[in-house]
Amino acid sequence: MTETNWQLVADGLGHLFAGPTAEQLALSDALVIPMAANTPTPVAGALLRAQLAKPLRLREHPGIDEPEYDYLASVAAETGLHIPVQEEIGSRDVLNAWLEVAWARRTVHHLERLRPEVGDIAVTVKRRKPDEDRYGQISSISLSGRLNFRGGLGRRAWPHTVKHLAKPGDADHDDLLAKAREEATAEDRHPERVTHRELALLDRWKVPRRPSLVDCRALHEAMDNATEERPMQVVLENHPALLANVIAGHHGIWVRPQVRLGDRYVSDFLIASRTSAGLRWHLVELESPTERLTNPGNQRESPTLRHAIDQIQDWREWLKVNLLPARATLPGITVDARGLIIMGREDVTDSAREIRDRHSANDRIEIQTYDWLLRAGLSADSTLPGLLDTETGDLDRDW
């Protein structure tokens, strides 16, 4: 379990060294076992177990050696905790109880020093690289006092290892936040391996079926009547199976319309598909069905197509800077998410095959027409590989 309030965590840990519980004192009185009023709770429990070990045939713990005691003494000294001498501690069970108390006192001390809150950036020393700093944005605090960082993957640190804490509004907070996000992204070697909890964030956008005749008729009608992009956005929002159908996703496909990326961008659609390789995202940009892919005179990219390509590249640039917060709602998304542009109608004077091939190979952006989308919907009953297969050359571009 985790908390977001450091004081609640510190208070919980403080009970460990507040003295024996009422139950422990009652048991010690009943057994006529002396118990000092300031004996920490874990130590009181260990002392009672030691007294009851033989009559209850409990496992007896071995004695301790000098290095073990020295480590306990070093942790206790950090907060001025008085501990018995080695001979008085006796067993490893009692020593472990004292260590639990010493660690808790040290953790509380540093929680009070830092007063950490969600959103703060903690600067710690890198494991096995003491000359390098490690950065993490606090997402929660474990009940043990450990600070958990955004990005998961076990990214966390004990309060006593934090050498600097930057709070929102501090002069260095934004710079350290960028470093924390970079570090979390770099450490995530397999972002496509999402958890069931992350997938649950997408439940409302899951597409459970292939396109129906109704879906295809609605698309066809919009294609014939629309003179701008908006009607195409509306028909695909109402019939998301048309978009889901062209992406390979044997373990689920999700279609999210109008996804806001920061304050500047809104994608027409984002499609997530899950296969045995994990979760993959596609960035979808729509243009009007009346627009051409090429200029009539020179067959080069039309201004509209160029704008659509730039849009996808802008989204990718935004993801580079904001990848970690983006994954909070778009689990597993990457900066090189594949792009899909849908615009125009099929026209022998506007095939743009070389342009399509170049952007598919160099930029991982597929450029297709609404006729292509309709044809895919009408073929939904057949085996449809999906766009991912175009990367391996298994799918003819002009089917």
Rank of each mutant, 00 (worst) to 15 (best):
G90D: 03
R113A: 07
G151L: 04
A277I: 05
H109G: 02
L81R: 11
V255N: 04
R115N: 02
A277K: 14
A30C: 00
A10D: 15
R49E: 11
L99Y: 12
E198V: 00
D170F: 01
E291F: 10
E23P: 00
D175F: 07
G262H: 05
L114P: 09
A184Q: 03
V108H: 08
C216E: 12
L374K: 06
D268G: 05
R356F: 02
G252H: 12
N295S: 02
R358L: 13
G152N: 10
D310R: 14
L147M: 11
L16G: 05
L47F: 00
A244L: 09
M1T: 04
L213S: 15
L199M: 09
R338N: 08
R280P: 00
I138V: 08
K167S: 11
R338A: 06
G12P: 06
E132V: 03
V101Q: 12
L202Q: 15
A26G: 07
G278M: 08
G80H: 08
L279D: 12
T290L: 12
E287R: 15
S139C: 08
L95D: 06
H307R: 11
H82C: 07
G252Y: 10
V214L: 13
I253A: 09
L8H: 14
L201N: 10
Y71K: 06
D336N: 13
L31E: 06
Q51R: 12
R217M: 02
E198Y: 07
P211K: 14
A328W: 11
K206A: 14
G151I: 06
D172L: 05
E228I: 06
P34V: 07
G90M: 08
S273T: 05
E78Y: 00
I271M: 15
A73I: 01
D172F: 01
V266M: 13
A157R: 01
E228K: 01
L147V: 10
A380Y: 00
A328E: 14
A30T: 04
R146Y: 00
T2H: 04
D371A: 11
L111V: 07
V101K: 15
L286H: 12
Q86N: 02
P40H: 02
R49A: 10
N362W: 13
R59Q: 02
D203I: 07
S276A: 15
I89M: 02
Q299A: 05
